[in-house]
Amino acid sequence: MGVPNWLRFKRRDLSTAIVFVIAGVCVRLALLDFNVPNFEPVMALTIIASMVMPLALAVIVPIGIMAVTDTLIYAFNIRGEYGMAMIAGITFFVWTGFLMATLVGWRLKKRYAFRIGNLGMVTGAGVLTTLIFDLWTDIGVWWFSYPAHTLDDAIRVLQLQTTFTLIHIASSLIFIPLFGSGYMLLTEHKTGITSPKPVDEAGRHSGRA
C-alpha cells in the first residue's frame, strides 16, 4: 500500500514549512507590541501553507506557530497579562479553528493554483474562513465563560465579538496578499509562470490554473 499524496512531501516542502513557522512566530510576537487584538498572521500563513505544501506539513504550520507563541506568551508570560494554562478550553477552539482553515486551503488547492492572478480569490476565501473561525471560537467563549449557556449569552458573545471580527477580517485582507505575494516573489514559482496546476488526490491536474 502506497503513502497517500497528502502525506508525501519533499525536503524543500519541510524547509518551507519551517520558514512559515518561524515567520509566523516572529510576526505574531512583533505585533503584540501594537496590542491590536486579532491582528495576527497565523490565519494567512495557514491558508497559504495549505495551498503550497502537502496537507501533512500544512497542518504543522498553524500548530507550530501557536505552540511556540502560546508557550512564550502564556507559559513564560513574555508579553501579556494572562500567565496561564496552555490547555485551557479556549485554546482548543483556537487551534482547531486554524485546522479548519487548513482544510479550507487544502480544498481550494484542488481547484486553484497559488499564483498572483488567483490571490484575490484566495484572499476572499480567507475572509470567509476568518468569519467561520471567529464563530467557532465564539462557541468556545460561550461554552467556557458563560456557564448558563443561554441564547442571550450567545447573542452577547456575538455582540462583543463584532469589533474583534472586523479587525480580524482586516488582518486577513492585509496578511494574505502580503505573505502570498512575498511567497510568490521568493520562491521559484515565478508568481505563477511555472506554478503547478492544481492537483487532485489521484495526482491528476484539475480545475482552474
Partner: peptide, 9 residues
Amino acid sequence: PQKAALAVI
C-alpha cells in the same frame, strides 16, 4: 507577475 506581486506587497 513579479511586479504585480511587489505592488501587492
